[in-house]
Amino acid sequence: MSSLDNLIGLEGASAAFEFSQSGELTDHRVAEGSDLTAETLDLLAHVFVANIAIATMQARGWEKTTGQGGFYPIQGFTLVGFEWSTVGNGRRGVVLRNDVADFEAAYAALEG
């Protein structure tokens, strides 16, 4: 079973996707009934790459300035919308319905 199949199997998942280091969509799964398109997932992939880069800058600056570790390297980023959230790392992402979203399970599945 591929990692995308694991991700799409998460409760409330409507799409799972994989992308290159620069954010181009390379593979995806869309759940039955979802109207998410490859174009939208490609944009979300770029959102992850951008935000993980910014969060990495923040974690580096924070750790250097405060001496408090524990944020670097960044393991993932989540964008929370009204009904949906998307959880991702530098390689994969998943779109989850907020009312049933299990973020910890999503981050664990992303590492797999």
């Binding site: 409507s14 969060a55 923040q58 974690a59 670097y72 993932g76 929370v80 919308g81 949906w84 779109v95």
Partner: peptide, 15 residues
Amino acid sequence: NCPFEEAHGWIVRGP
């Protein structure tokens, strides 16, 4: 069909 009409929040996860 954008599912993120408005960003309400975000999460960053470190180790």
